[in-house]
Every structure is written in structure tokens, then in C-alpha cells.
Nucleic acid binder design. Structure first.
Length: 430
RNA sequence: GUGGCUGUAGCUCAGUUCGGUUAGAGCACCAGACUGUGGAUCUGGGCGUCGUGGGUUCGAAUCCCAUCAGCCACCCCA
């Protein structure tokens, strides 16, 4: 026998008990997105390397070490990768399918798996799932506020109230270059006090100096020029508008002048939802912002857009920490039990008749009736229908109400109407 | 990718310090008893190459090395 094959590192199985919580989170996401007029789309999990490279930024860690490459069958084939995030694919799909021909903005969302070759940790997996919400085609600050409000509505629908929202503006092509010069001018004399990473960032990606967590770098940023003080009139106006819209919507937020995105095509609004229960390093529930420069980078017409990505696993984890996971639901409401051997066919027929009314499973195993009843009791089924050979011949069952213990004989054909009349949510779950 | 901690039954763990017969407990699972036919109780049962591979030794769950996996902190982000 070969060695047991285990799942790859950093990926995990979501079993039925936990999957119920996922369904809750996903249903809330669909509900929130639809209520804001966002439509569900699906984009491929594999995308061309170039899309991901340019969509994420070639100098980022994601590109440098976290990309999963798809092994090409021939060297000449296009290089494909597993998507590490959804936004670039969403924008590609928007243009490629002509959604830019409709009146803007396109309000789109998707839920799906993303892949990053990180070092696994609780709340951080190599395959993880995101809710991704994008409003593409319009520069209005109202859309920034809208996607934030959507995210907040989603979290609130799940009973998550204790998050914090941090907001910042990082300007645009008109004002950021000048600000970056100011930032560099501030940091250059302090270069020797910076960590090695930040010494490099000083010239390549100075915004990143602001959110460096190295103890030696942190104090220096206190006196650094703040971009909020150096926004161009348009960006300043947009920032004010986003903030006033959030206040009007009753969404509490905190200004974090050190919240940044490292890439050039991010503009103006950036934000992040956090939750303390997620613990230190992995406390981010969702993050996003405006990315007016992305479409050009991937070869399409300049088009403003804004959105966010949220971690499904992290939301589920937070619900778990709060003890708010939904109670495990029995797999069925009715179990049809064979009292004796060779009853598979009649048991299946009884179940078939009952299924239009209630979720029904069968147990025609050779175990004793006591064992089957014990299993049914533990599983929490509402009803049990028992039949032996003689009853099968007469087309009747003993129907037992597991709560009251009451039991009566009835004809198979009576099952659906009788059980259907009982108040029982036959809703679709997970 | 860097550093640290940890891997024993399906799950939670004891045993490891200081090597010594057939490696333990609870939960869960299966069978039976008890109420014809239930969640409790009782009895019995498989619980396992002690993560994997190699080494030291008369002898390794225990010591050493490697490897894989999980967790924690970085890096980064969801």
C-alpha cells in the first residue's frame, strides 16, 4: 500500500459542520451585494501571467514569491498562473466582454478561491476565498463610499459589529508625485536609521515607508509629511466627500495616514476593515480602494474603478471566535429505517415518496433496529419511518415523531401530505 | 522566503525529563444488555507502522539527523 496521500500544504477541507457557516457568510454576501445592485460574475481561476504581474505589480511579494504557476504542456504555450486576487481578472472581464459599453458604472461581485504561496498560518492559507466587489467605470467618490457601506452592511448582517474601519487617501497622478518627493526629502537624512528594506523602499516605493512595522522605522513616520495635507483640490474634495458620505451612512471610521497601497495605479481612497479577534498579524477582514490606473496597466482604456476584497475564512474565523457559528443542522428531517433484511427497495420507495415534502435519508443497513434508532436519535432527525417485510407488503410504515415519541401506522401515500403540513423549513443549505 | 515551538487512536491529550516487557485515558465509532424501536447508563470491541525516513543502541514513542505537516512571529496580505 502506498503512503496515505494528504492534502497539499496550506490548503484545507471545509467539512459540513463548518461549511454551514460558510453558507451563512456567502448568503449574507449575496444579499448585501444584490441589495446594492451588484451582479454576480465568475471569472477564471487561471489567468495569463502578464495579467497578474501587471495587475498586482511586478515588484510586490505576491509576484516575487507567491504565484502558483500552471505547468504548460509545451514551452510555447502562454504562461498561466492561479489568480492571487480577483480585481485584475474582473477588470479584464469587464473590457473583454464589452461591459464597458453599458452605462457606467458596472457593479460586479464574485466569490471564489485565490492562491498565494505564503507560509501557512491560522487565518492565512495558500488557497483562500474572497468576496470581491468592484464598481468599474466611474470616478465618483460616492462609489468609494458605496462599496464600503456594502462591506459594512455585509458584516452587520452577520452580526459582526466590532470591526474597525481605517480610511486614507493616497492622492493621484496630479498630487502624489510631488508628495513623494516631499516624503523622500524627509526620509533621506534619516536613511541610516531605517531598516534595510526601508532604505531600499526610500527610492523605489517611498509610500511603503509609512506602513513599515519595524520598530526602528515606526517613530520616524510621526514627523513625516502626511499626504492628506498635500492632496490636489480634486483628491481633497473626493476625500472629504467619501468621509461625509460615510458619516451620513453612520459608518464609524478612523483616519489612518499610514494606510497605503504600494502600487502606482491605486488612487485616492484606500481602506481596510479589521477585527481584534483575528489576532495580531492576520486581523484584516477586508481591504480595498480606488484603482483608477489599473485598466491602462493591463492594456485597456483608462477607466476609473473602486472596490474591495474580503476574506471568507477570516470572517468565518471571527464568527467562530465570537461563538456565533450556526448550530449544526441534521442532515435530514426524516429517516426511513428497514426493520429486517432485504428491504432496500421498499425503503427507497418510501423515501422517494417523502422527498417532495421533507429532506429524507434511508438506513437499510444490516444493523439492528436499535442501532439504527440510536443513530437516528443522535442525528436529531425529526421523524423516523420504520417498516418490516410485512409492512412493506401492505405498503404501510410506522411513523414516529422523535420529539414526542408518538408513533402511528400510515400508508406510504399519506407521508408527503402529512409531513409537508408540518412546519419544517426545507430550505437549501450549503 | 527567514526565525521559533509542536507532531502519540478519527478528535482532545497522558506517557518523552533520566531509552527497558504486549503504548494509555476520555470523546467518537461498532456490537450487545437494559425500555418491542432513540440521544442516558452499563458491558465488550478495531482503536495506532507513536508524522515519515535514516542513525545511535542489546533495546527508541523517548536520544541524534533529515524531511513533511501544523502553530507563532517576520515578510505580506484576505
Amino acid at each position: 500500500m502506498p503512503a496515505p496521500i494528504r492534502a497539499a500544504r496550506g490548503v484545507r477541507d471545509v467539512l459540513p459542520a463548518e461549511r454551514a457557516a460558510w453558507s451563512l457568510v456567502e448568503r449574507a454576501a449575496h444579499g448585501a451585494a444584490r441589495r446594492f445592485g451588484y451582479q454576480l460574475i465568475e471569472t477564471p481561476i487561471i489567468e495569463p501571467l502578464e495579467l497578474v504581474e501587471r495587475g498586482v505589480g511586478e515588484d510586490t511579494d505576491v509576484i516575487a514569491k507567491e504565484i502558483y504557476f500552471v505547468q504548460p504542456r509545451q514551452g510555447s504555450e502562454q504562461r498561466l498562473v492561479l489568480r492571487p486576487e480577483a480585481t485584475a481578472g474582473m477588470v479584464r472581464a469587464y473590457f473583454q466582454n464589452g461591459l464597458n459599453q453599458a452605462p457606467p458604472p458596472a457593479r460586479l461581485y464574485t466569490i471564489g478561491a485565490m492562491f498565494r504561496h505564503d507560509r501557512p498560518q491560522a487565518g492565512r492559507y495558500r488557497e483562500f476565498h474572497q468576496l470581491d466587489v468592484e464598481a468599474i467605470g466611474e470616478a465618483s467618490a460616492a462609489l468609494d463610499a458605496e462599496v464600503i457601506e456594502l462591506a459594512a452592511a455585509w458584516l452587520r448582517a452577520l452580526g459582526l459589529e466590532d470591526w474597525t474601519l481605517e480610511v486614507n487617501s493616497i492622492g493621484d497622478g496630479a498630487c502624489r508625485p510631488a508628495y513623494l518627493e516631499l516624503l523622500k526629502a524627509y526620509y533621506r537624512p534619516l536613511r541610516d536609521q531605517l531598516g534595510p528594506d526601508c532604505q531600499r523602499r526610500l527610492e523605489t516605493n517611498p509610500l511603503r515607508l509609512l506602513d513599515c512595522k519595524e520598530p526602528q522605522c515606526q517613530p520616524l513616520r510621526e514627523r513625516a509629511p502626511r499626504i492628506a495635507d498635500h492632496l490636489c483640490p480634486e483628491c481633497a474634495r473626493a476625500f472629504v466627500e467619501v468621509r461625509s458620505l460615510l458619516e451620513a451612512a453612520g459608518i464609524p471610521y478612523r483616519l489612518n495616514p499610514y494606510l497605503v497601497r504600494g502600487l502606482d495605479y491605486y488612487t485616492r481612497t484606500v481602506f481596510e476593515f479589521q477585527h481584534r479577534l483575528l489576532g495580531g498579524a492576520q486581523n484584516s477582514l477586508a481591504g480595498g480602494g480606488r484603482y483608477d490606473g489599473l485598466s491602462e496597466v493591463i492594456g485597456y482604456r483608462p477607466t476609473p474603478a473602486t472596490g474591495f476584497a474580503a476574506g471568507i475564512e477570516r470572517v468565518v474565523l471571527t464568527l467562530q471566535e465570537l461563538g456565533r457559528l450556526p448550530a449544526a443542522e441534521p442532515a435530514a428531517e426524516l429517516a426511513v429505517l428497514a426493520d429486517g433484511p432485504d428491504l432496500a427497495a421498499p425503503v427507497a420507495e418510501v423515501a422517494r415518496l417523502a422527498r417532495p415534502a421533507v429532506r429524507t435519508l434511508t438506513d437499510a443497513s444490516p444493523r439492528s433496529l436499535g442501532a439504527k434508532m440510536r443513530a437516528a436519535g443522535r442525528a436529531g432527525y425529526r421523524w423516523v419511518a420504520i417498516l418490516d417485510a410485512a409492512e412493506a407488503e401492505r405498503r404501510v410504515v410506522r411513523l414516529r415523531d422523535m420529539d414526542s415519541g408518538q408513533q402511528r401506522e400510515l400508508r406510504w401515500e399519506e407521508l408527503p401530505s402529512l409531513l409537508g403540513a408540518e412546519p419544517s423549513p426545507a430550505g437549501v443549505a450549503g
